[in-house]
Each structure stands twice: as structure tokens, then as C-alpha cells.
Nucleic acid binder design. Structure first.
Lengths: 222, 222
DNA sequence: CCCGACGTTAAGACTCCCGTAAGGTTCGAG
DNA sequence: CTCGAACCTTACGGGAGTCTTAACGTCGGG
């Protein structure tokens, strides 16, 4: 497949800079300066779409919404201000990343490559991590030893680890995701759940590593 | 994207000269004459900061320290005297280059451009330095001999060296980044961690050089 | 009311990490 | 070359972080 990237950006200097950087990296950037012009394009013709929010003509948010209806293409948002509300809105609409101006073109490049590397897990209902399969919709986990019955807390822990598969996940994040916040959860509580989870996972527990001083990581047994 | 450069310089003639040179080269210099005024600025708003050490109000050294806490922005030091002690102190605090007055504006321009050529690594999740790969998200380091398990302190040290790859990183900066501040860390403690890190890196440890009197540098084995 | 399922707490064992001390080595100035 | 400062390495003990087991409390269904 082609390495086409759609860039929607009205700033001429910045646009040229980004186009140059992407070209040098082996991509094939298509640059559109005007929001209205971008409306007619087919999102699926591109591997990634880089979208400035502040545009003449059609608004960036509208473009994002429009693309999302038709396609799963990764969309990376550029924005002038570091506005948290905008950021949250964009991510809720399905944006994959958010870069605040000013930025170095190399940073944008790195993020684009990150988008391409990461399989998109948003909206996925079944995550496969090595020999472990987590079905988020059916709330079911299947390992080499068959389906196992997990408690709600155990499932939430494993689901978060699976969604972030490969990355270290902080203990706090797991506690937030899985444990009842009305309790002053003792920091040791998580240990117990991890322990039980491991024993249920059986031999597949090898994929669940402790990241010392940080938390845990679920990864493919390479 | 903006080409903003912050210039902190009290000498009016010199400052004007530098501003002119930078403007002609396509940069957008912001000139502040007073150290106290420079304290409130956000270092991340600029691509490079050029800092005179001898200032009215806040000392240049203090500004450097303050910026380094918040940001990875390249800082270039100007100094009246060719004082080796000052130079070493500045480099220890994380300055990226050091220019002695008097100088030709073209020389300063060349050094600034050299700083910019170095790719910015903020926001990147995986840094590659020669045969060493540091994955900040997974908290994992991969060398020619496979993945190695580092302790939190060792990882922080290597991560900082990787972010500043190619540059000498001061011992103090590494201590700040990696060691528990509640301990009055003995000056020799870092040595021990570096030693352990090197032994874990195995043959790849060749890329980790000692910069005598300053700190350490992680570079590609070219 | 009893019982099972589940989350939580407590306590001890265990692993692993970090700082320190001590002695050896390398560097660079004079 | 000599000397002192900076750096490297090793070994060790205290302590933090983690694992496991064994209870206790709660809730809901039979």
C-alpha cells in the first residue's frame, strides 16, 4: 500500500516544513490548505491523516467527525492552543493523537510512526495477547487451558493490561480501573488480586510480568 | 511552526546585533534584557534559548537551572570571560553549548543551527541509540543481547542519557532524575549505578562514555 | 438462616534494590 | 613523572516492594 499521508493545514510555512520532513522519511504527503477542499476526499485513501483544528472553511472538528463516520484511518490532531477541552473532545471523536503547536517536525514524524505501529484497539471487542484472549464484550478470557472464570475485579485488571498490552501499567492505574473507590483500598489489595489472577492463568501467567517499582505488564511471550 | 528564540542579554548593542542576525536568518527572536523578566517565561515556548550569564537581577546560572527543571529545550550560554570554571558549571547544569564574548554573530547562528539539527526526543516513546533501544512506555531496554531487566534507578539514568543522546549529561542532572531525593545521596552512589548499568549493557556499554569532570554521554557507536 | 462467592485486610516470608564503605584504577594538571 | 582528584568495582546490610496464605466481612440466593 502507498505511504500517502493527508495533511490539512493552512499555515504555509508550517505545512511546507511538515511536507519536507515526511517526504524525507519516505512518506508521500498530500497537502491541502483549505478545510472545504478536504471535505471531498476519501479518508481511506490515506494511511494517516494529520489535521489542523483551526482552518478556514470547514472546521477541523467537523472534518474529524466526517472522516470517522466513513473510516478507521488514524487521525492526528494539530492544535494551536493547549486546550484540554478541545483535546478531550477530539479524542472522544476518535482522534488517535494530539500535538500542540509549536512542535518539532521530528516529533510529529515520531507520533505518526507510532500510530502506524500500534494496532488500533479502540472499539475492538477481543484482544489477543500471546496465548491469552480477552473478550471485552462477553467478559470472557480464554487461555491455552480453556476459558477461565474471573471475578469482576480480576477481569478489569486483565482487561486494562490487555488494552495496554506490551506497556508497563502503573499500580495506581490498575487500582483505579478495577477496585471500588469507596473503599480506602490498601495498597496491598492489588497484590492479592494479581496473585489470584496468576494462579488462574496457570502456565500463561508467564506473560504477566512484574515491573518493579512501577506496576505490571502483559506481553506476548515472544 | 514558530521559530521563536529567546535571547536573554543585557548588553544593548550586542543584543540588537544578535536580534538582527537571527531575524535575517528567518528566526523570530524574543529579546529580554533583564533576568527577572526571564524567570516567568515558559522555556517550552522556544526552540532555543540563548542566555547571557552576567545579568542584572536573577543570575544566568539560576535561570539555566530553572529552565532545565521544566524542559529539555537547548540552552546556549554566552559569557564575557573565558572562565573554565563557569563553563564547566554551566555544562554540568545541562547547557548545550558555550560561546565566549566577543564572537561573530554568524558563529552564534551556526551554533544555534547545530542545536536545532539534533532531533527533539520529547514525546517520543522509543529512542534508538546505536544498538541500544529504550522504550519509555514499556519501560524496557533492548540491546544486541536481548531485553534486559533494569531497576527503576538504572532505567531513569539510561532514559535521560538516551533523551540527551550525543550530549554530555551532568552527574547532578542524573542524580536529580534518578535518585531518591529523600536520601542525602553520597556523591559516589551514582558511580555504583553506572557500574551496574554498564555490566548489564554488556558489550553495548562501549556506547556509554565517561566525560571526565562533567558526567556521562550515551552515543551511537558510529 | 446458612452457604457460597467475592473483596478486603493482616501478617510473615521472601525477593530485590539502593546506598555506603573500602580499596583499586584512571585521568590530567603541574 | 608524580600526585591528587575523579572515577570504577566489589561486597554487604538495611529496607522497601512484592508474594502468598489465612482469615474476616459483606452480600445475595436457596
Amino acid at each position: 500500500m502507498s505511504n500517502r499521508i493527508l495533511l490539512v493545514e493552512d499555515d504555509l510555512a508550517l505545512g511546507q516544513q511538515v511536507v519536507d520532513t515526511l517526504s524525507q522519511a519516505g512518506f508521500d504527503p498530500h497537502w491541502v490548505q483549505d478545510g472545504d477542499a478536504a471535505r471531498g476526499l476519501e479518508p481511506d485513501d490515506y494511511r494517516v491523516i494529520v489535521l489542523d483544528l483551526m482552518l478556514p472553511g470547514t472546521y477541523g472538528m467537523d472534518l474529524l467527525k466526517r472522516y470517522r463516520v466513513k473510516s478507521e484511518v488514524p487521525v492526528l490532531i494539530l492544535s494551536a492552543r493547549d486546550d484540554t477541552a478541545d483535546k478531550i473532545r477530539a479524542l472522544k471523536l476518535g482522534a488517535d493523537d494530539y500535538v500542540t503547536k509549536p512542535f518539532f517536525p521530528e516529533e510529529l514524524l515520531a507520533r505518526i510512526q507510532a500510530c502506524l505501529r500500534r494496532p488500533n484497539l479502540v472499539g475492538t471487542e477481543r484482544i489477543v495477547v500471546g496465548t491469552i484472549q480477552v473478550d471485552l464484550k462477553r467478559r470472557e478470557v480464554i487461555t491455552t487451558e480453556g476459558a477461565l472464570s474471573l471475578t469482576p475485579v480480576e477481569f478489569e485488571i486483565l482487561a486494562l493490561l490487555a488494552r495496554r498490552k506490551g506497556s508497563a501499567v502503573a499500580r495506581d492505574a490498575l487500582v483505579d480501573a478495577a477496585l471500588d473507590p469507596s473503599h480506602d483500598a490498601s495498597r496491598r489489595t492489588l497484590d492479592v488480586h494479581m496473585s489470584r489472577l496468576r494462579s488462574k492463568l496457570g502456565s500463561d501467567a508467564a506473560q504477566l510480568e512484574t515491573v518493579w517499582g512501577i506496576g505490571y505488564r502483559l506481553s506476548e511471550g515472544s
